Computed example of a mutant assay.
Amino acid sequence: MGENRVVRTFGPFVPVILLWWIIAELEVFPSAFFVGPGTVFEKFDELIAKGILPAYLGDSLERLFYGVLFGMLIGVPAGFIVAMSAWARKLTWPLLMFFQAIADIAWLPIVIVWFGFSLTAVTFVIVYTIVFPLMISIVSGVEQVPRDVVRAARSLGAGRLQVFTEVILPGALPAVATGIRTGLGYGWRALIAAEIIVGTSGVGFLMFDSRRAQEVTGVFVGMIVLGVLWFALDALVLAPFERRTIERWGMIRTAEAGR
């Protein structure tokens, strides 16, 4: 069972790496623009030995942590306020749609003017990217809670707070988990874009600095680190969190489907 899971997880990468190696060996592209896996892995070891890659990766993860933390602190309560209040929904929904449509990278020029090349600038972009998808997911989750269940709880004497904590919140938690997972994905891409443009360290800056030095190997290293790190984060943390949340708190939809 464990071997099958390993094959399913890593098997698709084998032909990709093989194709990558063949293209490099045949020199389809000049070596200044395209290098093979062996060269990239040597560069990877070199950057680790010099301490550059661990330091840059630590900086990226720190920025992501602060961006996600503040994004959730803003997005979760704001999402429930919009979902639970009719007037808040009417007032803010057009704004949500408007700002959701503006890409995070579009904010970078004005953010640089406001905050300079700083951690605050990068954090602002990540928070902006996370907040709106999270709020929209929460609103969608609250809307999916059956109104009959809410009315039944109220008819049994439950107050507004009790209805929220015992009916609406559990019913919306699967959507919250999905929103967090989606928001983190957006935030991760926003982090790299911000580091490329305004960063002075981090994996995105490593890629940009390598490009500036015409060292394509460093760009390949950065791309692989980004992919592997996100794959591990999603597979080991986010996907299990979303799955367990749905299994634990998705009982409203399950009960409704069994009628």
Rank of each mutant, 00 (worst) to 15 (best):
Y128V: 09
T129E: 09
V131S: 00
F132S: 10
F132G: 13
F132W: 15
P133K: 14
P133H: 12
L134Y: 04
M135H: 11
M135W: 07
S137Q: 12
S137Y: 15
V142T: 01
V142Q: 00
E143T: 05
V145Q: 00
P146H: 08
P146D: 11
P146I: 05
R147E: 14
D148I: 03
V150P: 01
R151H: 10
R151E: 14
A152F: 10
A153R: 05
R154F: 01
A158K: 10
A158N: 11
Q162K: 12
V163Y: 00
F164Q: 01
T165F: 09
T165G: 00
V167F: 02
I168V: 13
L169K: 05
P170N: 02
P170F: 05
L173R: 06
P174E: 04
P174A: 06
A175T: 09
A175L: 11
V176M: 04
T178D: 07
T178E: 12
G179M: 10
I180H: 04
I180E: 13
R181C: 00
R181N: 02
L184F: 15
Y186V: 13
Y186C: 11
G187V: 13
A190D: 10
L191Y: 00
I192M: 15
I192P: 14
A193R: 06
E195N: 07
E195M: 03
E195V: 06
E195L: 07
I196R: 10
I197Y: 03
D209P: 04
D209C: 03
A213R: 12
E215M: 09
V216W: 14
G218I: 05
G218Q: 11
V219A: 08
V221P: 09
M223A: 15
G227N: 05
G227F: 08
L229S: 14
F231N: 06
A232F: 11
L233V: 11
D234A: 13
